[in-house]
Computed example of a mutant assay.
Amino acid sequence: MEKPGVAAPKKLQLSLNKGARFTVKIAWECEADHQDDVDVHALEANNSGNGARVTSLESVLSTYNTKKMNPRGGVLPNNADGSFATPSGGLQHSGDIRVQGNFETITIDGSRLPAGVNEIPLFATVHKADHGNEHESDHDSDEEAAFADIEVCSVTISDDNGKELAAYKLSDEFGDFNVVQLGSIMLAEDGAWVYAPVGRGFTGTINDVLAHFS
């Protein structure tokens, strides 16, 4: 019982939102005489109102940033199956596949992202693959390829319930470019992770992307 007119004490509450999971899948098929390789990348970033920023290579989930593919500069170790992840485990990559007709995936787990990370920018790139050198690190020929060189290249982004949030036909919609900013997984004010589409193509390299976000 409570005395009339006495406000009830404020009850303690914990946020029950442990973060959402998202999957980014990129798939492609091309002519036999093409050896183009496509990749999908994600960044653990902080956006304080002036755009998303990344401050360390450990926050860059990219094939270019793995010790296997870039032994001279990559910082992320590969697992035995070729997969890799950021140290937090919030971003996980299925591993680089350089065989057309296949696919790669990135999984974003909001519950495992580091404190302060509130935006995950997502990108796709294409380059002329050198299948004879798995340790190719510089990818000097990046700007020689474009998504139009690939017969079919698509990206889908879905939530943990399998609901498709976005789909892109990179070979059609962004054929003139070799880099596409797909969008960002963002932490909303209510504590929920949501997908915000961007869909912007440009010509450059992964270092141009990093320069924009660092």
Rank of each mutant, 00 (worst) to 15 (best):
S111I: 12
L182A: 11
F22K: 05
D160P: 00
V155D: 03
C153E: 01
T105A: 07
D140C: 04
G49Y: 09
L57M: 15
M1W: 04
I106Q: 06
R200T: 15
L61T: 07
Q181A: 13
V6K: 14
N70M: 05
S56P: 08
K68Y: 11
R98C: 08
A45R: 07
V54W: 01
R112G: 03
G5Q: 08
M1F: 04
I106Y: 03
N133Y: 04
D142K: 00
T205R: 06
D159K: 06
V126E: 01
L187K: 03
Q35K: 02
G74L: 08
A129I: 04
S137G: 12
R53A: 14
R72D: 13
P4Y: 10
G199K: 08
K169C: 08
G89P: 12
S158R: 11
E2Q: 09
S48N: 14
K25S: 10
D96V: 08
F202D: 04
F213M: 12
P4K: 11
L12C: 05
V54R: 02
Q100C: 12
F103R: 10
S141F: 01
L14Y: 10
D37P: 08
D176N: 15
A211R: 14
P114Y: 04
E143S: 04
E58G: 02
E143W: 00
H139D: 07
N207G: 09
L12K: 13
I108W: 00
A85M: 10
V117Q: 06
A211L: 12
G95L: 02
Q92K: 09
I185S: 08
V209H: 06
E104C: 06
K67A: 14
G5Y: 06
N178A: 12
I120F: 07
S171T: 11
V99T: 15
D33E: 11
V24W: 01
Y195K: 05
G175S: 13
D190M: 01
H41Y: 05
N46L: 07
S111T: 11
F22Q: 06
S56N: 15
S15L: 07
Y168L: 10
T205V: 07
K163S: 13
G101T: 13
K68Q: 10
G201V: 09
E44Q: 13
E173V: 09
A146F: 01
E151D: 15
N17M: 08
G201L: 05
P87G: 04
A80I: 14
G101R: 11
K3P: 10
Q100S: 15
T86G: 02
A146W: 00
S15R: 12
H212Y: 15
N161L: 11
K25T: 15
D159F: 01
G19S: 04
G95T: 08
K169V: 09
G183C: 12
G73N: 14
E134A: 14
G74K: 03
D160M: 04
S94C: 05
L12V: 14
